[in-house]
Design a protein around this nucleic acid. Sequence first.
RNA 1: AGCCCUGUAGUGUAGUUGGCAACACACGAGACUUUGACUCUCGUAUCGCUGGUUCGAACCCAGUCGGGGCUUCCA
Length: 562
Amino acid sequence: MSDLDKTNSGSTPTNFIRNIINKDLESGKRTSVATRFPPEPNGFLHIGHAKSICINFGIAADYQGTCNLRFDDTNPAKEESAYAVAIAKDVQWLGFNWNGEIRHSADYFEKLYSFAEELISKGVAYVCELSMEQMREYRGTLTEVGKNSPFRERCIEDNLGLFKRMRAGEFEDGTIALRAKIDMGSPNINMRDPVIYRIKKAHHIRTGDAWCIYPTYDFTHGISDAIEGITHSLCTLEFEDHRPLYNWFLDNITIDCHPQQIEFSRLNLEHTITSKRKLNQLVVEGIVDGWDDPRMPTISGMRRRGYSPAAIRDFIGRTGVTKKVHTVEMTLLENSVREDLGDKAPRAMVVLKPLKVTITNYPEEKVEEIAAARHPQNESMGTRKIYFSKTLFIDQEDFRESANKKYKRLVQGKAVRLRNAYVITCEDFVKDEQGNIVELLCRYDENTLGKNPEGYKAKGVIHWVSGSHSKLATVRLYDRLFNIANPAAEDNFIDAVNPDCLQIIDNARVELSLVESKPEDVFQFEREGYFCADRYEHERGKLVFNRTVTLRDSWAKIEAKG
RNA sequence: AGCCCUGUAGUGUAGUUGGCAACACACGAGACUUUGACUCUCGUAUCGCUGGUUCGAACCCAGUCGGGGCUUCCA
């Protein structure tokens, strides 16, 4: 949790929810704060959930309150245990600890059933035998009021008996339901006698076959909040119209706690999709390699990409909390990632597209060991050994036969600094039959290790590795999954998938120190970007790195302008 | 169309008793640099629109226009 404090303390900006809580605490309406994160275990958590997690756990932590993790498992047809396991792990990985044991709405099924009986006894709930189609007709539309069900005035005793028979399994799915008796003429459709219990003869991941009737979300959620003593029930905007119903249930049952539901807007991210259905489609159609593919906006995908929990939390903090629909730029996320990794990631040199360089005036068998800083601004991170020899590799992008003055890399006849080593001058180059440059012939200046050359200047600094002291590695260059800002608005979002979202390089040359790296270790490959050793596939004998994010690249902008 | 919510730089937020519109990211210009990185400096808004109240309005009032959500026995 110390990691958490570092990024959040003091810098948490205020928002309308905190303002409400502050007032509640000042007025004495509340004396403590209790929140909850209530996912349905029907899919994997994504960046949108991260917002809800950060808000709920973050507020609880800042007010010395508690935050429960509760699985909202009221629909056995859609829920799976595997999702529940993955969700809990993701929450922990993000750096949060829930209060006590994991809760489940299913744990309250017996209480919920009693509360339903209470509503029936008070004459504000009834068993309705309208079919689903009929119920839809009776409900009316957005502009027309609904009409009362013919079963609405059934007597309390009959309702009680029928409800018991529902529980006993005497009716088939969809034939009968328990409804709240509210107002079929309400302009808020949620108040038009909503269903509170339906028949579902399905196996539940937690209660097994104990029940064949299941409470609906609206009935379950608020009561579960109240049972847990939640003070502020924070949810997304689409539940706004459900708030009157949330309150109605709590006002009509006997319970001594009435949490306040507060809605905030969902997180939308440019170039990203956060619909569970659409993310599933990407997986099913094999467009990505699974829910944890580094291109996915899932928590597990971002983890595999190399985004740290601190970076994700920082990003969420920067997006703020309001009720207005918004779409955040991808650069904001990338900035949080770079800022975090800039401090934490040790530097290393990796050549993605190797171009052989022969130092013509360097002795054949000589090898020099150089101690290179792991971090230019943080000496405490120490040094690693790199090796200089007659045969080196630089990146193909770092050499041109000729170039204008803006090009600060190696050009024939010009000098350049090899990062952490000597200044070299390119004298000649070799082309193959196809005209590709395959080798550079350069001289090195032996008086330039740790000092500037005398009488001339090196134009720039490029990275390199030694031919004899480097290893081959697989490097995956990830780019945004969608080129367009709002793929969700497309008729077919699959068509908007960026064809270049993954480039696999299997002959990258990495400096020797990287052989020691472990899965999930992060690095800055100098002048290229931040990378992490793959969580699953990276091993000592088979190095696999994923690009987390590139470095900011002002040269790309200059070059694009021409 | 009924009900509910929402409009402040390119983007996201702050602006809580009316008093020079703040911050971050992005973008542009420059400095520094053994990473074209980092860091630093400077620049960028007639607060959706119209009218009213006021010495003074992002903020108060009226109207208007735009964006979003709601018609699952989903959550």
